[in-house]
């Protein structure tokens, strides 16, 4: 399933958001005039302070909400296999074993386990948990639960994976590890990701595009490209290039905060 990832600018479109707005109760503008083109293989971070509409954007993309105005279009039309989602919490079913949790997206499409067992095991292998398929979530650490959650998002090979601050609740060490693993995973399966975070460092380390957002009203104020090549590793974390991108992103974020205040 690993397709060669094309360079930025030459990628095929996946999703097109144009002039998307969401207003709550008629007067609270959660998201104002958002335009975003998501292309195949993109790793896009939505970076911004709380209240900037990052999560609203994800809920709109996943059709949990309808936009007040504007449009969200999938290239080639929307299908059932478009999305995988990872939340801030692992959001596993505590009563189901690890493999059954990963089976869920298939199960809801009426596919019996026997038919998709190989896919489930492959997804678990990708996150390094193939030995834990029989375990219950409570037997796993926080980081391992998150990996199961990622495996569940990957298992259907969706066109787009949405991640809503997935590592925010984890400790720094686990977080670094999972960031590394996520990039490694992306090298192997060329997935397209929209990643919500409020960490500048995380967004620079992971993404090739960073969308900086401001609050009140939630809106996009800047888009940055991180042109550093993948694979990125610990060496990248300490490079001058990384520091420079972090500064750029920080300044943009600062600008966003300044405007909001």
């Amino acid at each position: 399933m690993a397709k060669e990832r094309k360079p930025l600018g030459q990628r095929d479109p996946v999703l097109h958001m144009s002039h998307v707005e969401k207003t709550f109760r008629g007067n609270v503008v959660a998201l104002k005039d958002m335009n975003l083109d998501v292309n195949e293989g993109d790793f896009i971070s939505l970076l911004g302070p709380s209240g900037c509409g990052k999560s609203t954007a994800l809920r709109l993309i996943s059709s949990l909400m309808q936009p007040t105005s504007g449009s969200i279009r999938w290239a080639g039309g929307q299908t059932k296999d478009d999305l995988g989602v990872v939340f801030q919490e692992p959001t596993l079913m505590p009563w189901a074993r690890v493999a059954d949790n990963v089976w869920l997206p298939f199960r809801l499409r009426g596919k019996p386990y026997a038919e998709v067992r190989d896919d489930v095991l492959e997804a678990l292998k990708l996150v390094g948990l193939e030995k834990f398929q029989r375990a219950f979530p409570r037997e796993l650490s926080g980081g391992m639960k998150m990996r199961v959650s990622i495996a569940r998002a990957l298992v259907t090979k969706p066109r787009l994976i949405l991640m809503d601050e997935p590592f925010a609740a984890l400790d720094e060490i686990t977080r670094h590890k999972l960031n590394n693993d996520l990039l490694e995973l992306r090298q192997r399966v060329n997935c397209t990701v929209i990643f919500v975070t409020h960490s500048v460092f995380e967004s620079v380390f992971l993404s090739d595009r960073i969308v900086v957002m401001a609050a009140r009203p939630g809106r996009v104020i800047r888009e940055l490209q991180v042109d550093a090549p993948y694979p990125r590793d610990e060496a990248f974390r300490t490079s001058a290039e990384y520091a420079a991108y972090c500064r750029q992103a920080s300044e943009a974020l600062h600008e966003a905060m300044g405007e909001a205040a």
Partner: peptide, 9 residues
């Protein structure tokens, strides 16, 4: 969140 996930799927 699980409920949302069920909706998405």
């Amino acid at each position: 969140n699980l409920s949302d996930l069920f909706t998405i799927y």
